[in-house]
Design a protein around this nucleic acid. Structure first.
Lengths: 340, 340
DNA sequence: GGACGTTCTGTGCACGTTCACAGAAATATC
DNA sequence: GATATTTCTGTGAACGTGCACAGAACGTCC
């Protein structure tokens, strides 16, 4: 029955000072590892701290230092993101690991509704965190606007379109898409289409651009189908459309592994063999890729490194250091498997 | 270049009071929606707030109220959990949704290492949250011990064994196991076995008990194989053992979907058709279920509802209300698909 | 022995709120 | 019109810390 009310009063810095027969100031100094405190005093204080079971009251500390040693990580649109995107977990872990090195606490905030958005904005305004990292936000999102207005140090993972002055980390979707498409073409495919998605987002638009780069003159807009979401169902639907438009299609670049999985379902259903009749490549290297039959060739994002890079950048900003550059794009890696 | 240092001094409650020609106290009252403030004063204050762009300083508020209106959600062992368990995302969203209704902020904390564990414990001690929800912790975890020591209101999702005095939410593994076994029997199976797992955990033991309940007199201990872990490999091994002991087996209840997947591998290998020769059902409704061929009949956990229930419970605790009961078990739902 | 630097310690103030209390103003009651 | 009651407002005192400053203790050097 640990109700808030019957918890005993917590020991304060005063209690420690009294126990150790010194003043608050001296206690504060050993707490913060400052010089100029005698060995005898330090020992007495450390003993006293242990004896009275003292822990710092962070609210009080934050009030005066204006720092919390916490970084917020905002996960936007979690319904589509959390349950489908396998990279997000890895980004989270990477961020956590990097912040951990500097003893910063990662606090993850979820925005699923407008109400959440407003509340999170209040939370950020409230000074609970020193900086934020934002995953999968868009530029016109209320939360992005709020962050700008608050003036909180912020780093976007996968930067939104048309905001050149924000800090970000991401991958070079365009050249990754170009590279894997080129490799697919290298297997001798003649009619190659794309199952695009989320063209209103940076990632989606760039992947399409990269596909186009690789095809050059051979690019045929008829062979591009697009959906708003990176889902298996959309992949299936898109693949049906592609087959209807171009029965002779022999190569597909899917904008995500989930889409590729849906496409492969349809190909099997229609009796096309992979990779003999149709070669297919995906994007993300999620666990879909290994569970497909045959295993999917795809682009691996260094999601954990992305998280770490974002963390490093936000730490720089928080400490007043301007990061080396505005944004950083991390290299991707092609995982070539049996599907093409 | 929004560096911390050049941000202008934030407006305080004093500024608002001066602007509106009233006192701090009155401003505080309208801020907190308290009665006994005149309409004229209220209007003047609201205007002033907007004019000076005032937002409350939460650190200061927390210092005096000893409340933060935030609830921590601790995700433990994220490497295994985040990337594999699809239920966790749903629990998170459910929790967030419920807390949102009461204007509580959910902050998610990740523990991936001992260092994280200690830092999170400090964070909790620091009073940044009013209560915690813990996912997938065990009773001897350092963080569980720390929480107990701090005396913070806490709710476990999926409660650990042998701690009768903690609050928890979970599912009724026993009756869910009974129900799905009964349904499997309903398809006319004569010789039904179980691939059990993790009998040292609450969930594992209860699933076996439910299986036994459903079989009644027909229960044959020879037809139960058990392993310590819910893994695909264990499922395969167990299925081999079952087939050796009882070649005429025609039904299997697997304690998890991963186990069922392993079992189906072996059945295919041995030339038994599913569901014609052997019917099989699983537990969890993870994404294994939909990727099996045929799709797996399984027990769906109401993960979002679990999150909501945990949130409700922790809110009760935080507000000093003793929840109706120590724990609550939520009903599950059978997803009936092609495997039985 | 006095002046001086170094190391150490104690004290007042500020951070921005909420809360309890006292008192003023307005309204109701006799 | 005096008194009781309700509604409204202002003020002082916390909450627990960090920081700047003043000063004490101690040793060093002329």
């Amino acid at each position: 029955m640990a109700q808030p009310t019957d918890r005993p009063r917590r020991a304060t810095i005063f209690d420690v000072a009294a126990e150790a027969n010194v003043s608050r100031g001296t206690v504060s100094r050993v707490l913060n590892g400052e010089p100029y405190v005698s060995d005898t005093a330090r020992e007495a204080i450390e003993l006293a701290i242990a004896r009275v079971g003292y822990v710092r009251n962070m609210a009080a500390r934050n009030l005066v230092t204006q720092r919390t040693h916490a970084i917020g990580l905002i996960v936007h649109e979690p319904h589509s993101v959390f349950l489908e995107d396998p990279n997000i977990g890895a980004i989270l872990l990477g961020t956590n690991e990097r912040l951990s090195l500097e003893d910063y606490q990662l606090v993850c905030l979820i925005i699923g509704s407008d109400r959440d958005s407003a509340r999170v904005a209040d939370y950020l305004r409230g000074g609970f965190v020193d900086g934020v990292i934002i995953i999968s936000a868009r530029e016109y999102d209320p939360i992005s606007l709020a962050i700008a207005e608050i003036g909180l140090p912020a780093v976007f993972v996968g930067h939104p379109l048309s905001q050149p002055d924000i800090h970000y980390v991401g991958i070079d979707n365009r050249s990754a898409a170009r590279d894997i498409t080129a490799r697919l073409l290298g297997t001798g495919r003649q009619r190659v289409g794309m199952l695009a998605a989320a063209l209103d987002r940076d990632s989606g638009a760039e992947r399409l651009a990269g596909f186009r780069d690789a095809l050059g003159d051979r690019f045929d807009p008829e062979l591009v189908v697009s959906h708003p979401l990176y889902s298996r169902a959309n992949g299936a639907e898109g693949m049906r459309a592609l087959l209807d438009r171009a029965p002779d299609i022999d190569g597909v670049f899917a904008a995500s592994d989930a889409i590729a999985a849906g496409a492969m379902d349809v190909l099997r259903e229609r009796g096309r063999r992979v990779p003999e009749d149709v070669g297919i490549v995906g994007f993300d290297d999620s666990d879909w890729a290994l569970r497909c039959q045959p295993e999917l060739s795809t682009v691996r994002q260094p999601a954990d490194l992305l998280g770490m890079a974002a963390a490093s950048m936000v730490l720089d900003l928080v400490n007043g250091k301007q990061p080396a550059n505005q944004g950083s794009l991390l290299p991707t890696e092609i995982q070539w498997r049996g599907s093409a």
